[in-house]
Design a protein around this nucleic acid. Structure first.
Lengths: 236, 236
DNA sequence: TTCTTGTCACCTAGGTGTTAATAT
DNA sequence: ATATTAACACCTAGGTGACAAGAA
């Protein structure tokens, strides 16, 4: 079985409608997809991998007209609303790439003794990418999937491919691929929770998350409330 | 068979008497021990590891009296000569630790397809170190060794331990463990060749090594002359 | 108008020798 | 006197969103 790490943070993003930046060079996901794994054979070899499947066959676009223009510090504007409209049918599917965890293959004991982190995984919108990154269509919604493959030592292992394969889906990790953030509250939550975006925080840097009082920052409520975020069981 | 990478640089250091810093927290080696590997079974599993053996049973100390005092930029002094004296018998041996390359175990094909770099290996003088670093005595000389272990799939693999084991020694990688550099020319060569020490260079940063003319900097002659340094065969 | 691209300042994370203070 | 330690400025390497300019 598999538990999603940082579930509270994923939930908070999911509630707003998670967005993930895609760039030509490749961009990491935030939150990072991380799991705890249980019940492997400690001595057996496993491959761990991820892929991304379209949630629907739609293309999205930003709600026109009702856009916000919020100058908070002078020169800073939020141009985007938080609503999505269906813009039509999905663009042609991107190459269905897969990301193997770089430690693969490894023994079950190795995978289980610590959190497995997919922090090397990068998303791109470049259809010609040759860095092995995951290729996605911007303005489309995706569901990350996590797969565990048991490396069957038997000679005719191909015959057992079905039973040596297990897939885990966490619906709270769904997101919309974008080239620039559309929902300003997503931007703010990324800035508040991603250490690499600390330069864009304007609140007291020491105040969060260590000394954060529940309810003080509505954006972070759920995540801040649980200091040891409870993992969630996978769907299926 | 195994080829040492950056052999020309190793030779240059070795000619001056290589020194490696040891610290309580652990310090990387420079140059980094890197090898190219040939002739593995691409489908078989191998473990790669290093250890360090004393070159002799002596303790060294710096030559007293004839010390240099060279003020180059105001306030900068070089207190140390380049000569070593035997100070007596070696201190009690340190725990004989081993460093497994973090990618171990992996297939022969994996190891052979790119340079294998031991850049995660760190040296410490802390006898109580619990970070798994290599523990060495300061002011003692050491010989790095590189070992390849074939992971025998047979049930009684212990019986074949001898033949599944191969050791490679490059004498040009010998060094003296120190807590502070003793030979000022070693310091200068480290500054000139280690990118992380770029802040201490006073020559034109663009001038080396890209546009370096042979013979211009005596310290770097051998390394600078060979842009694609030839690897050296291992002794034994 | 909407979306994408490239550059940038500002971070995290961690590897350098220097230096002054402290052991031994 | 010699050897070790810890704090430090200055790097490498690379992950952020902001922003202005460009493309569709």
């Amino acid at each position: 079985s598999v538990q999603l790490e940082m579930k509270a943070l994923w939930d908070e993003f999911n509630q707003l409608g998670t967005e993930m930046i895609v760039t030509k060079a490749g961009r990491r996901m935030f939150p990072t997809f991380q799991v705890k794994i249980f019940g492997m054979d400690p001595m057996a070899d496993y491959m761990l991998l991820m892929d991304f499947v379209p949630v629907d066959d739609k293309r999205y676009r930003q709600l026109p007209g009702l856009r916000l223009r919020v100058p908070s510090p002078p020169g800073r504007y939020a141009f985007h609303s938080s609503s999505w409209l269906v813009a039509g049918k999905a663009d042609p599917a991107t190459p269905g790439r897969v990301h193997y965890h770089p430690d693969s293959p490894a023994k079950g004991a190795q995978w289980m003794k610590q959190i497995v982190s997919f922090d090397k995984l990068k998303l791109t919108n470049n259809l010609l990418d040759d860095n092995g990154h995951i290729i996605l269509n911007s303005m489309h919604r995706y569901q990350p999937r996590f797969h565990v493959v048991y490396v069957d030592p038997r000679k005719d292992s191909e015959k057992y491919a079905e039973e040596n394969f297990k897939t885990f889906v966490f619906e709270e990790t769904r997101f919309t691929a974008v080239t620039a953030y559309q929902n300003h509250r997503i931007t703010q939550l990324k800035i508040a929770s991603n250490p690499f975006a600390k330069g864009f925080r304007d609140c007291d840097p020491e105040d969060w998350p260590r000394n954060h009082r529940p309810g003080a920052l509505p954006l972070m409520s759920a995540f801040a409330r649980s200091r040891n975020p409870v993992s969630s069981p996978a769907h299926q």
